[in-house]
Design a protein around this nucleic acid. Sequence first.
DNA 1: CGCAGTCTTGAGACAGATCAACTCACGTGG
DNA 2: CCACGTGAGTTGATCTGTCTCAAGACTGCG
Lengths: 273, 273
Amino acid sequence: MAERSASSRQLSIEAFRAALPAGRARSAIADELCALSLHQHLAKGDALACDHRDDRLVFMASGAAKLVAYLPAPAPVPAPAGAPPASPAPLASAAIGAGSNGAMQVLAFHFAGDIISVLRQGTRATEGDFRLIALDDCELVVFSTDAFLDLAQSDPIVLRWVLAGSLQALHRSRTRMMQLGHKSARQRIADFLVSMAERLSDSTSGACRLILPMSRRDIGDSLGLTIETVSRQFTELRDAGLIETKGRSLVKLMDISALAQAAGYPQLQPALR
Amino acid sequence: MAERSASSRQLSIEAFRAALPAGRARSAIADELCALSLHQHLAKGDALACDHRDDRLVFMASGAAKLVAYLPAPAPVPAPAGAPPASPAPLASAAIGAGSNGAMQVLAFHFAGDIISVLRQGTRATEGDFRLIALDDCELVVFSTDAFLDLAQSDPIVLRWVLAGSLQALHRSRTRMMQLGHKSARQRIADFLVSMAERLSDSTSGACRLILPMSRRDIGDSLGLTIETVSRQFTELRDAGLIETKGRSLVKLMDISALAQAAGYPQLQPALR
DNA sequence: CGCAGTCTTGAGACAGATCAACTCACGTGG
DNA sequence: CCACGTGAGTTGATCTGTCTCAAGACTGCG
């Protein structure tokens, strides 16, 4: 396992270098950052262990993952009997499985190339329990945010790159909030499909085949719907001829523009701007 | 008006300097940033004009404001007849009034001392129309994000300060998403009150008097509820003895811990961690 | 091939939206 | 200073979309 891990570490680090902003791939700062990085493989369903001390910056070299927040359960003891809180493995954590119990919100889906800020567990009770969970097998490059930024301070381009990433995440999060606030189930599902088409296949109109790495439950948890409602909406969209489905994860979007309209967006201007 | 504006500009800039991270208030970078800044007064109800070219960084020197996203209305022409798109005033914009028509989502409330990233209008139709609207009279210090960061590149401490702000906004946005996804009206209102207590009066337990600068409609739009539901929940919380209200905007929280529980959070550990 | 878990489909219940009066706070002008 | 009017807020009755509970069907794994 040591060998395999070493080579996939190499691949992941290369992917990270390649993602750095123009010209930084081979710079001194890149070397320093890589030296600082921890490589992490997550099997499908595994969670990146949470951390109470440091915010983390995570680069996804490959795979797909969901960032979830468990709503703090009002009633019982969170720790399952016999699990020592001070885990021996510093990073890896047991599979928390999608099909778990209580309320959990999927905050975002992330794919290869994304850089994600995973905040440390707050001490405030009003803050949830944030976790990054693998949907596929995936390779991560993990940094302590503080350590990363301490280094990056010497290279403002890199710092700005991280800032741009977090502003984009903020924008996506806000756009998502709009959905959760004011959209119907139909609109949310249509919007979800359109945005997945953008991120997984770069298509913004016409037709498009998608392989969704997430379950119906994940989709529901991310949109604030139950799996039954998600399923019903898929059926209705299929009946309406907007999508076709095959198996659990393959979805064919027949007409992205029409879906965007179903999502409540105005007709896309062909040559806007 | 020139005089009054000049002096309030001075005050605002001082507030901005004071908010800069430790020791930067009188540094060269502060001077350069201030030189770059635009001061802006917004009367209650006014909106910071949107901009299609630049992202903006806005420092709130005083007052309170809401960041809203208008959902692009599927049907009609957005521009009211006779309003020239190229407005004479480069920054200010007419009051869009709270009581407007279509669906609008309040993404966040902001108060004195906050630094806010107002993204430029996207060209994508799937993106909303973002605006910062004054709830009170307020004083702003406005920067072009690009210009600000170009300067801040020479001072990583400042850059990191901005990054910290945007990560906090991201965190708040995600926490809000959790609410919108999985919480009942009662829980949302209780959570809203608790978080306002934290931000407006720094209280996290016990009792607390609040003067809410936003209308019921704003609260509803921010939580994804109608004003009727907001009103009913206030009534029920009052009947339950958790709050008292006087007039439109004064709310007295009788027991913040109890409200936090009503918001669906576990009992606050007195000495957690 | 068969089992386990995911997904689909159906019937009924309920929270919150909608529609419609009504009341009250607050700023205005007499 | 108080009467007045407007718009914000409250309250009630009804309606609808989504959740819930309960079977059933399919996928994909061992």
